[in-house]
Amino acid sequence: MAEAQRVRGVVARSKGAPVGIETVVVPAPGPGEARVRVQACGVCHTDLHYKLGAINDDFPFLLGHEAAGVVESVGPDVTEVAVGDYVVLNWRAVCGQCRACRRGRPQYCFATHNATQKMTLEDGTELSAALGIGAFAELTLVAAGQCTKVDTAAPPTVAGLLGCGVMAGLGAAINTGGVGRGDSVAVIGCGGVGDAAVAGAYLAGARAVIAVDVDDRKLEWARGFGATHTVNSRTHDPVEAIRSLTDGHGADVVIDAVGSPETWKQAFYARDLAGTVVLVGVPDPEATLEVPLIDVFGRGGSLKSSWYGDCLPSRDFPVLLDLFLQGRLPLDRFVSEEIGLDDVEAAFDRMHAGEVLRSVVVL
Rank of each mutant, 00 (worst) to 15 (best):
L219S: 03
A201P: 00
G224W: 13
L245P: 00
I210R: 04
I242V: 14
A222T: 08
S244A: 14
T235L: 02
F225C: 10
I242C: 07
P238I: 05
D215I: 13
D213V: 08
E240W: 03
R234W: 05
R243W: 01
E240P: 05
F225Y: 13
A201I: 03
L203N: 07
V214N: 09
A206G: 03
R217Y: 11
D215C: 12
L203M: 14
D237N: 14
T246H: 03
I242Y: 02
R207A: 00
R243Q: 06
S244M: 05
P238M: 07
A241D: 08
A208C: 00
V214K: 09
D247Q: 05
A201Y: 05
V212P: 08
A241L: 06
A241Y: 02
R243C: 13
G248P: 10
G200W: 00
W221T: 06
F225N: 09
L245W: 08
A206N: 04
S233M: 12
F225H: 07
H236M: 12
T235V: 11
Y202A: 15
T228A: 09
G226S: 04
A222V: 08
T230C: 04
G226L: 05
E220T: 15
D213Q: 13
L245G: 02
D216P: 12
G226D: 01
N232D: 14
A241W: 06
A222Y: 12
P238H: 02
V239D: 08
Y202F: 14
H236Y: 02
L245C: 03
R223L: 02
G200D: 01
V212G: 11
A227V: 05
R223V: 10
A208S: 14
G224T: 12
L219M: 10
A206L: 01
E220H: 13
V231M: 12
D216A: 13
N232A: 14
P238Q: 01
